[in-house]
Design a protein around this nucleic acid. Structure first.
Lengths: 194, 194
DNA sequence: TCGACTTCTGACCGATCGGTCAGTACGCTG
DNA sequence: CAGCGTACTGACCGATCGGTCAGAAGTCGA
């Protein structure tokens, strides 16, 4: 593995755990036994390092939504496979996903974050294209943000690590449940109208 | 309104929007037309300012879980009212909730964040006391994190602001759905075992 | 052996950070 | 008026930040 790749991995972990603003180039360099100058030799700036670290995840998600419009037959039937692939991609890039979800507010001026925002907008508008109700959009947001949060939580060393396979199944199932319109009615609906 | 209260409000908004590490005392002071020294006169440190800003939200949530063990009759029947009160509290303190959820990783050494962590642990263990399965816990986490994310998103000026009343209902309904064990079986379960 | 290129480093720079401190303006009480 | 506590400020401090730069060390082909 090249020094550059090592730095990207270290940066990804640091940024996910302590935040982009909470991580210094010095610390990332120390993590891999290099100097701050070495980091700035491989990457033009701290932002460039963040971009290099986030790029694979963004590319993977871009790939998913590009191959999306092909299957147009039955949305409900296609949903499980779609959500499964989506969750697997999120799991593969959990650190980057966690960085994006929890820090996109503070980093709204960073280009790579803006690219992520556009990507999310595309996903959202695609998934709820035919029923862009506030309700559907909100449920989808809860699902995506919740899943991303779990991903970020899973890569911390505290608490016990859940079984990855079981986690994957629960994520897929829950996201699917939030994504599809509620087919079966809930029993007690509280005192809400509807 | 006293200068102190004004500063707390400004800090809450800054911290939620740009992150604790992304906000300087100088900026918060400028938001209210005061000087940096004035901020440090009212609060011993930047951490103390964060604590003062988060305290009302943490106190409110503490109040909720303290009044929890009283109703022990039927968990399922009590859930709607409980979740409703919970969501309303989160809505009242949306900025603080957003700060906590998205920055608790980067601020894990800050005492007020640790207090929040303990609070969340208490809530989680209380809500899934009788069925502490990974599944139930994960679903609950997704719901809480998702709702908190929506809250943080709602207080940004970008995009259109959704109808508060409708948002509240969707949040309650969705959280309730994720909280209660799935009473009715989903139709297509994909190619997962189980 | 001699450059040329890549990789990497320590020294250094200006800016900004959180925080300290001496001092000022003001209102109240005696 | 004097004295005192509250509210507030500008000047200043050390530390750390991201980033620049000149140069050292190694490799490689001519």
């Amino acid at each position: 593995m090249t020094t550059r790749d090592t730095l990207v991995r270290a940066a990804l972990e640091r940024f996910a755990r302590y935040g982009y603003l909470g991580s210094s180039i010095q610390q990332i360099a120390a993590d891999v036994g290099a100097s701050k100058s070495s980091v700035l030799y491989h990457f033009d700036s701290k932002e460039a390092l963040l971009e290099a670290a986030m790029a694979p995840a963004l590319d993977a998600l871009s790939g998913i939504i590009e191959s999306l419009p092909e299957r147009r037959d039955d949305k409900v039937a296609a949903a499980p496979a779609l959500v499964t692939g989506f969750v697997d991609t999120l799991l593969q890039h959990s650190a980057a996903v966690s960085i994006f979800i929890s820090q996109r507010g503070a980093l709204q001026d960073v280009p790579v974050i803006q690219r992520g925002n556009e990507l999310v907008d595309t996903i959202a508008s695609t998934l709820v294209a035919e029923a862009p109700s506030t309700r559907a959009l909100t449920r989808l947001s809860i699902g995506l943000a919740g899943v991303a949060f779990i991903l970020g939580e899973a890569l911390r060393e505290t608490h016990q690590r859940p079984d990855p396979a079981e986690l994957r199944e629960v994520l897929i199932e829950t996201l699917l449940e939030l994504c599809l319109p509620a087919a079966c009615t809930r029993a007690p609906q509280a005192e809400m109208h509807t």
